[in-house]
Amino acid sequence: MVWAVDGVDLDVPAGQTLAVTGPSGCGKSTLLQLLGGLDRPTEGEVWLGGMRIDHLSERALARLRRRSVGFVFQAYHLMYELSAAQNVELPALLAGASPRAARRRAEELLQQVGLAGRARHLPSELSGGQRQRVAVARALANDPLVVLADEPTGNLDSAATHDILRLFDELRAAGQTLVMVTHDERVAATADRVISMRDGTLADDTRLDGDGRGMRHSHQGTGSGGTGLGALLRWED
């Protein structure tokens, strides 16, 4: 049996930006899926907002993801038959917001990500960087407790990557809890903290200063325990 994530003990305070790095196949994306309730641990517990979530029904997990977790994927995963504004409105509508409130929220978010003038455009009419900014706006639609981003700049050129990094820096300054899986050192350097994974375990943990330099480094090894987002999320073996 292969253990994709094994014996991880991680605590991330609310409002922190965390970058998860490591080679392909080390368990980064699996960890993100567990944190977001997209997958369930074979052992251990996952907690979000003080509530254990790993034993919830699929329907309850879906409700929780809609209201409390924002996802940003490398491949955008936009609805290509919907406009940028409609893509951003959709999570709010699914969570029970009125069409008027969802439309107003979408307008605010598209303004925030610099795409107010592209609200009526379909994803096929947008560049890769613009699509990813729509995806970030969509992830924020329901004011989530945490945004989980899986290789958010993996499909972008340098200019578009710069735009996304600037946007993430704005989210960080606003106090949004953000967990990013990335191979890109530029993305990792924008975080408050960087953890490195090897073979499903945490290899090291570095806290960064404002210039992206490491301030503290501690080897985590393969200790037992839980995975947590401070008071937001916890997963214990």
Rank of each mutant, 00 (worst) to 15 (best):
V20D: 12
I195W: 14
L229A: 11
L10H: 14
R234F: 14
R186D: 08
Q130S: 03
T30S: 10
T30Y: 12
G37D: 10
D205N: 12
R105I: 06
D143C: 04
A119V: 06
W3S: 08
S196D: 10
R172I: 12
E89T: 02
G154L: 03
R213Y: 12
V20H: 13
A119M: 00
Q74S: 08
R40Q: 09
G200A: 05
G44T: 14
M51P: 12
G175Q: 07
L10A: 15
V147Q: 04
V88C: 03
G221A: 08
T177F: 09
L229H: 15
R198L: 11
V136F: 09
E45S: 13
E81F: 01
R65D: 00
V146L: 06
G44D: 15
E45G: 14
A188C: 12
M197N: 08
A62G: 01
R186E: 10
L178N: 13
A141L: 06
L178M: 04
G50R: 04
P91V: 02
R138V: 02
G154Q: 03
R131E: 10
R52F: 07
L145V: 00
A102Y: 04
A62K: 08
A75E: 04
L232E: 05
S24L: 00
L64P: 10
S83N: 13
S196V: 07
E45I: 09
S83Y: 07
G129C: 05
T182A: 05
W3V: 07
L94V: 02
L38E: 13
V194R: 12
E151D: 05
T17S: 13
M51T: 10
D237N: 14
R213K: 12
G70W: 00
V72L: 11
L34V: 11
H121A: 02
S218T: 12
R216F: 11
G226N: 14
L93V: 00
V72D: 07
L94K: 02
T182F: 06
L115A: 00
V113D: 04
V194F: 14
